[in-house]
């Protein structure tokens, strides 16, 4: 009888699976991704590599010496202790982050616009005491522009009423406002010396949300040629809340990571962050196999660095608050080694 190996589910809970069961989950995860996104499944060698990483009792695992990649720690400066500046110094001085990110707890450009001078002051203070590159992060967050939180008619209310044209018009109206807000904040951060801007969780409100980020990126790139622009996605698949929006002649709705990357490159991003959501009812091995399969087509064609999202509930990292070292380190190693990522 095969021995059960401790391993994690997508919700972080500990379970036991045999090596054969883990192998079967890896095969099922890659097949699920291949069928859904019409991409090749992982090769036998890649699946075997993944199996070696996951069929282990080790508390921690890591890439080989010298094979480390860049950690663009979005969400650093979370207020763990003291001030946000203290936290960013901790990320640099104690946690070894390669890129530090200032952000506001209301992680939305629309909200940040109203407190930009305070955020600029914080950024300027931090830049004087931090050596590592620093970027400012927030979400395009298109939903914030709808009533009752914003001024624009709520497309989620219009659609069930059959007012499809009105719902589409409302989204395009929100795009214009979101672009203005993203550029406004990027201008403010560039003015105080930030190294980059992170348009994070892009596409969370669907294809119009993604369009807003792409258009903002184009403008920021023209205005600030040396500024870093990281575009991180909200999910593996761009939802068609509008359904007809195109960018560079391609429909945004339904885009998988490779097409998303091409759009981000065209707009002028310098780092792209693909995102694959976790299925909490499946094992970590299943989720990582699926995530790697979906993102792998990006790796051969990317002209800019790929920093895969690997936080709570994405990139094979479990959806739980206290993330177990075993689960995070396995997902981290698996994605860096099999995908040959540029960063996380």
């Amino acid at each position: 009888m095969e021995e059960g190996i401790p391993t994690r589910m997508g919700d972080g809970s500990l379970t036991r699976m045999t090596r054969s069961e883990i192998k079967a989950d890896i095969e099922a995860g890659t097949k699920a991704a291949a069928a859904k996104a019409k991409v090749p499944p992982l090769s036998d060698v890649e699946q075997e590599h993944l199996l070696d990483i996951y069929a282990s009792k080790a508390r921690f695992t890591a890439v080989d010496m010298g094979e480390g990649v860049i950690i663009s720690a979005d969400g650093s400066g979370t207020r763990h202790i003291g001030t946000r500046q203290n936290d960013m110094q901790c990320f640099e001085q104690l946690l070894g982050a390669d890129i530090i990110e200032l952000w506001h707890i209301d992680y939305s450009f629309k909200a940040v616009k109203t407190v930009l001078p305070f955020e600029q002051q914080e950024m300027k203070d931090c830049l004087n005491v931090i050596t590592s590159p620093m970027q400012y992060g927030a979400m395009p967050d298109l939903g914030r522009y709808t009533q009752p939180d914003g001024p624009i008619a709520n497309w989620s209310e219009l659609m069930p009423l059959g007012k499809i044209d009105e719902a589409r018009d409302a989204q395009l109206e929100a795009v214009e406002q979101a672009v203005d807000d993203m550029v406004f904040v990027a201008d403010g951060m560039a003015a105080v010396g930030a190294d980059g801007i992170d348009l994070d969780t892009t596409g969370a409100a669907g294809d119009a949300d993604f369009l807003a980020a792409l258009r903002a990126t184009e403008i920021i790139r023209k205005k600030h040629p040396d500024m870093g622009i990281e575009m991180g996605m909200a999910g593996e698949f761009v939802l068609g809340m509008h359904g007809q929006i195109e960018y560079d002649g391609r429909r945004l709705a339904g885009m998988w990571p490779l097409a998303q990357l091409k759009a981000a490159e065209k707009a002028g991003a310098t780092i792209f962050g693909p995102c694959v959501n976790v299925n909490t009812g499946k094992s970590g091995a299943w989720n990582v196999a699926r995530a790697i399969t979906l993102v792998k087509p990006c790796m051969a064609e990317a002209k800019i660095p790929i920093h895969m999202n690997a936080g709570m509930g994405v990139g094979g990292v479990p959806m739980c608050r206290y993330l177990p070292l075993d689960a995070v380190s396995r997902a981290s190693k698996a994605m860096v080694e099999i995908l040959r990522l540029d960063g996380l």
């Binding site: 890591a62 480390g68 950690i71 720690a73 070894g96 981290s332 996380l344």
Partner: peptide
Amino acid sequence: MSIAHGVASGMGG
């Protein structure tokens, strides 16, 4: 999480 990623895969800042 940041510690885990940094130690498992990071360059070290």
